[in-house]
């Protein structure tokens, strides 16, 4: 690991700094008190996702409100999910309540696709529909998904859902339909235009500030600084999937 770091950091550090300065300029004041941070991603539309970045998320569960459902609602609205939570309904992000059995202390955390670096869903997919984009976002290519649901069985986080019924009135940016498996996309349509995922935006706007989204490969990003400054964990780190979503406070 440390070898890898040395290789990538030394040769391009000055270039990277210039790039970061640009990123800093992208922070724009939209209204008093409301800052919109460009996430130093700005790339022209004809340029694909870059493997120099790796998108990740850090969730501070101590700031996550018990019973707060803001991130889930925002996800449902953005991605056109109906918000039902039955066994045959799609849930891309869900609130999980954990309880310390010895003293009864309870708290909440949001759980979704962890965007694993070594994703089991991709390993088992027989068609190549489950895929990891160059920037680490794990997606299902619905054009070739045959709905076998192997990936659902393989995912240790129960992050994927199968669409059982026909869907109409989709968000044009988020095509969804019967017969395919789906899961959190980190709101790839938003990330590609320099915005944070809907859940993160909503959580911050709600004042909880429990979620940070950003580039794990960039040592200057907010998320990298937070990760290098405080303890954090991967859920089921024993599986060595190197998840893109990390948690604090659990």
């Amino acid at each position: 690991m440390s070898d890898l770091h040395n290789q990538t950091e030394i040769p391009d550090s000055s270039e990277r700094r210039d790039f970061l300065k640009l990123g800093a300029l992208a922070a724009t004041v939209l209204a008093p008190g409301v800052m919109l941070y460009g996430i130093a991603n700005s790339r022209p539309p004809e340029q694909g996702a870059s493997s120099k970045l790796r998108w990740g998320m850090l969730i501070d569960t101590t700031k996550c409100g018990n019973g707060c459902n803001t991130c889930v609602t925002a996800c449902n609205t953005e991605n056109g999910l109906n918000g039902k939570t039955g066994p045959q309904d799609s849930q891309w992000i869900r609130k999980v309540n954990i309880k310390n059995l010895s003293n009864g202390f309870e708290h909440d955390l949001p759980m979704m696709c962890q965007h694993c670096e070594n994703p089991p869903c991709v390993d088992v997919c027989p068609t190549g529909a489950s895929m990891k984009r160059a920037d680490g976002i794990v997606l299902v290519d619905r054009h070739i998904c045959i709905g076998c649901r192997y990936c659902m069985m393989a995912c240790p986080y129960k992050a994927r859902s199968f669409v059982h019924e026909p869907i109409t009135d989709q968000n044009p940016e988020v095509p969804r339909g019967k017969g395919c498996v789906e899961s959190c996309t980190f709101c790839v349509q938003r990330v590609d235009r320099d915005e944070t995922p809907a859940c993160v935006e909503a959580c911050n706007a709600n004042g909880q500030n429990a979620m940070i989204f950003g580039d794990l490969n960039n040592p200057e990003s907010e998320i990298s600084k937070a990760l290098s400054g405080q303890a954090s964990v991967e859920v089921r780190a024993d599986l060595r999937l190197n998840t893109g979503v990390r948690y604090q406070g659990i």
């Binding site: 925002a74 056109g80 009135d169 968000n171 044009p172 095509p175």
Partner: peptide
Amino acid sequence: WDCHATKPKKRPATL
């Protein structure tokens, strides 16, 4: 059209 929207729509106002 099993998956894609057949109508143009403004992106949803998340908030």
